[in-house]
Amino acid sequence: MSAVLVLNADCGPLHRVSLRHAIRMLFREVAVVHEAEPDARMGIYPIPTVVRLVSYVVTRWRHSRGPAWSRAGVLVRDGRRCGYCGGAASTIDHVVPRSRGGGNEWRNTVAACGRCNNRKGDRTPSEARMPLLVTPYAPTWALV
């Protein structure tokens, strides 16, 4: 299933939902189709790619801080690419290991493949002689 972008009533982006959730929103009439593409399989019904809410939702809280840290968020932020070798990533790695005081924070975690994560172990990248190819950063709401 593809993700559908949800816009606020003023056409500002809010978040993404599954196609199934977007269709439920359309049936409940809390959103309308803003943009759609034809169905490649049958071509009968257009598939919504962007929906717009009917009534405005206040989102001041979103501007005060970015999204909360999560493993899935780190993988999305890094494009599921290993921060050490550039290969396909399936895990996350703490730049400063948790045993040395490093926490679950955006700037302390990168996506990593299992091999690099195991090789680095409980060391910093410099101690393991594994330089980072990317610089970890805290994403904004627009990127997640």
Score class of each variant (00 low, 15 high):
residue 1 M to Q: 14
residue 5 L to V: 14
residue 7 L to Q: 02
residue 9 A to P: 01
residue 10 D to V: 05
residue 10 D to I: 09
residue 11 C to N: 12
residue 11 C to G: 03
residue 12 G to E: 13
residue 14 L to H: 04
residue 14 L to F: 07
residue 15 H to I: 11
residue 15 H to K: 12
residue 15 H to L: 12
residue 15 H to Y: 14
residue 16 R to G: 09
residue 17 V to F: 10
residue 18 S to Y: 08
residue 21 H to T: 11
residue 23 I to K: 14
residue 23 I to L: 14
residue 24 R to N: 08
residue 25 M to S: 04
residue 27 F to W: 09
residue 29 E to G: 01
residue 29 E to C: 07
residue 29 E to P: 00
residue 30 V to G: 00
residue 31 A to T: 03
residue 32 V to Y: 03
residue 34 H to P: 01
residue 35 E to A: 15
residue 35 E to P: 03
residue 36 A to K: 02
residue 38 P to M: 10
residue 38 P to I: 10
residue 39 D to Y: 09
residue 39 D to H: 06
residue 40 A to Y: 15
residue 41 R to F: 15
residue 42 M to G: 15
residue 43 G to V: 13
residue 43 G to F: 08
residue 43 G to S: 08
residue 44 I to W: 12
residue 44 I to M: 09
residue 45 Y to W: 13
residue 45 Y to D: 11
residue 49 T to V: 15
residue 50 V to I: 13
residue 50 V to R: 02
residue 51 V to W: 00
residue 51 V to R: 01
residue 54 V to Q: 01
residue 55 S to N: 12
residue 56 Y to R: 14
residue 57 V to A: 07
residue 59 T to V: 15
residue 60 R to V: 14
residue 63 H to M: 05
residue 65 R to L: 06
residue 67 P to D: 03
residue 67 P to G: 08
residue 68 A to L: 13
residue 68 A to H: 12
residue 70 S to Q: 12
residue 70 S to V: 11
residue 71 R to V: 13
residue 71 R to I: 13
residue 73 G to R: 06
residue 74 V to R: 00
residue 78 D to V: 11
residue 79 G to K: 08
residue 79 G to A: 05
residue 80 R to P: 00
residue 81 R to V: 07
residue 81 R to K: 13
residue 81 R to S: 07
residue 82 C to N: 06
residue 87 G to F: 03
residue 88 A to P: 06
residue 90 S to G: 12
residue 91 T to Q: 12
residue 91 T to W: 08
residue 91 T to A: 04
residue 92 I to F: 03
residue 94 H to P: 02
residue 99 S to T: 14
residue 99 S to L: 08
residue 101 G to E: 06
residue 103 G to Y: 06
residue 105 E to F: 09
residue 105 E to L: 11
residue 106 W to E: 03
residue 106 W to F: 07
residue 107 R to M: 05
residue 108 N to L: 02
residue 109 T to D: 09
residue 109 T to H: 05
residue 110 V to G: 00
residue 113 C to V: 12
residue 113 C to Y: 05
residue 115 R to H: 15
residue 116 C to L: 04
residue 118 N to W: 13
residue 121 G to S: 08
residue 122 D to H: 14
residue 122 D to I: 14
residue 124 T to L: 10
residue 125 P to A: 11
residue 125 P to W: 13
residue 129 R to I: 09
residue 129 R to E: 11
residue 130 M to S: 08
residue 130 M to R: 07
residue 130 M to I: 13
residue 131 P to R: 05
residue 131 P to W: 12
residue 133 L to H: 03
residue 135 T to Q: 10
residue 136 P to S: 08
residue 137 Y to S: 04
residue 137 Y to L: 01
residue 138 A to D: 02
residue 140 T to A: 04
residue 141 W to R: 03
residue 142 A to G: 02
residue 144 V to C: 10
residue 144 V to Y: 06
